[in-house]
Design a protein around this nucleic acid. Structure first.
Lengths: 207, 207
DNA sequence: GCCAGGTTTGAACGCTTGGTCAAGAGAATG
DNA sequence: CATTCTCTTGACCAAGCGTTCAAACCTGGC
């Protein structure tokens, strides 16, 4: 039976991602990964040098595609609001297509970001953040985003809301990614309050 | 040396919370907890029947104070916008005062919510969610929140943004909790876009 | 000085873990 | 049929885990 040959590797990667996402990296054993692919644990070490190498490849791969997508779909030439929308859309779509890797990334990066083996992952994560902040700052400079709220705070709120959406979206959901993007932009840019008159602080006091 | 006597128990609880929050429950050993209190691992079992009992007590205690605070500071008689603000403020303040327990709660509850030992924790978590949703629904009914965005989605975005703020706030931050509450409400209710004219969808199409 | 009882020790137990490895299975090639 | 090579097996570590427990330690009251 050799319908898939070099596929074993990615089969292991997928199975590991699912298990890691579902019950955490630390409490997933190499034996479980093997079991869910239908091989013994020892065979896994034919494809990967260690359990941690699997985790690392998952995280790095995820961040690479994310960055590539940002570059392709959210170039700087877009107007800030459109670019932010594109960034949000790419983030949500990637989370939707690779939910397991996304989750592993969130759960793990904080614990390992200072380890030398993860230097590349950290660099990629920094680049992701750079793009977000650049988009927000450009929008402020253009006068379309509020200058009275810290870019970092806004970035973190928005990023966390997006990243965590994978935890509550389940596959059989009729709520599409497109709708989610729509609602996300609606809430974060225009607010959840019904618009009657000006309600709170005046926009962008000069300072 | 007996300045604190029955305090041993809470000393263990605090030390465990800090370790759990910092490196995860699974990869924190009972020996480490003991070490950080200055006793041997065995002695911990004089106060707690198991490691899991410590986790459970942390989570349950956190959810209890959170619910009590909601009841005290965000009663239903408040107007929806004020009540939502109060809920946000209580959540952020509790996260600020008990950052470790908050983090353990976030990291763990998803993994254990169906275990019978955690029935009480699950009930408390459900009550927390009930209060959030009630506040949002009341606001929609009163016409001050947008009816064109799902309450669940808004709740989840806001909740996740708040819960995760503890991950990026560090103790020496000059950014106060009061400011954070302010910015949080500003973003989520009024939006990050500068208000010029109506920008996107009309408010609350009847349906 | 002595006792009683809560508290701590320190070693041990049973078990699981990530990782290793010599041996072999299986197919493809010649 | 023999050779070669990739992939898999299954037993095997050493290390580390949560937990247990008899024995020792303290400390306050008599």
């Amino acid at each position: 039976m050799t319908p898939k040959d070099t596929d074993r590797r990615s089969e292991i990667l997928d199975a590991a991602a699912e298990l890691f996402a579902h019950k955490g990296v630390a409490s997933t054993t190499v034996r479980e990964i093997g079991e869910s692919v239908g091989i013994y644990a020892g065979a896994i070490y034919h494809y990967f040098p260690s359990k941690d190498a699997i985790v690392r490849e998952l995280i790095t791969g995820y961040l690479e595609t994310l960055n590539a997508e940002y570059a392709a779909k959210a170039p700087r030439r877009l107007a800030p609001r459109a670019r932010l929308r594109a960034v949000v859309e790419v983030s949500l779509r990637t989370a939707d297509e690779k939910p397991h890797a996304t989750q592993v990334y969130q759960d793990q990066l904080r614990n390992v970001r200072d380890l030398p083996e993860y230097r590349r992952a950290k660099a990629l994560a920094d680049e992701v953040q750079r793009i977000w902040l650049e988009t927000i700052e450009d929008g402020k400079a253009a006068g379309v985003f509020r200058a009275d709220i810290s870019s970092k705070v806004f970035h973190r709120f928005l990023r966390d809301a997006i990243w965590l959406s994978i935890k509550w979206r389940h596959s059989g959901d009729p709520y599409t990614t497109e709708e989610l993007v729509q609602d996300c932009i609606a809430i974060f840019l225009d607010g959840f309050a019904v618009r009657r008159a000006r309600r709170t602080r005046p926009p962008a006091p000069p300072r």
